[in-house]
Design a protein around this nucleic acid. Sequence first.
DNA 1: CGGCATCCACCAAGATACTG
DNA 2: CAGTATCTTGGTGGATGCCG
Lengths: 111, 111
Amino acid sequence: MFDPVCPSTLSPFRFGDKWTPLVIRCLEDGPRRFSELRVPLRGVTAKVLTTTLRNLQRDGFVSRAEHGRQVEYALTPLGRSMLGPINEACAWAEEHWDELLDAREESGRSR
Amino acid sequence: MFDPVCPSTLSPFRFGDKWTPLVIRCLEDGPRRFSELRVPLRGVTAKVLTTTLRNLQRDGFVSRAEHGRQVEYALTPLGRSMLGPINEACAWAEEHWDELLDAREESGRSR
DNA sequence: CGGCATCCACCAAGATACTG
DNA sequence: CAGTATCTTGGTGGATGCCG
């Protein structure tokens, strides 16, 4: 598994996208409409959000459903399964964020 | 925690770097020298590897030790603590990679 | 061996304006 | 409301070459 490092650098894959994990977490508690998503994602532009959603759709992470004029995005089972790793990573960050900042500050001083 | 979405978009933070997770995994089994790292990372350029290592050093993930002419990089406890989430993410990918490819292919056909 | 200095290419992300 | 269409830009990654 490490040798070819997986087809396509795997590790970051979708994680790499700046907004992907955020969008997925926004959908954690149920379907959301386009503009509902824009609120918690502090000012993401429509274009970027659209792109992100289209990519997630393409990869089978979210589903898109039109209800009359409304459009609802929801996590598919596949998308939902990504909550595990994402929350894991967030928990790690919460726990170690301070250490990281400390280290960064310290090496900043010596430089 | 979600509201400010964490200072600095948190989620991807260091994960975002294309090579960061890979480098950390390369150091999982012990210290490695610069050129030892280049081998499994299939042709990463020296410059990029240097940049990545410097960033990791700055954030306290790896330590750099000169032994005469040799230079050894090793994981710090903080860096080692990141193996958890990383391996978690890799395990997820291994498990769901096929589903992702299937979904991508399917939406590719319909397009 | 272990880098650093440059230059370049590409692309994601943002700003802005417009549409069904 | 839910996008699409352009244009611009910053930053990351890659290529190449030089240095102690």
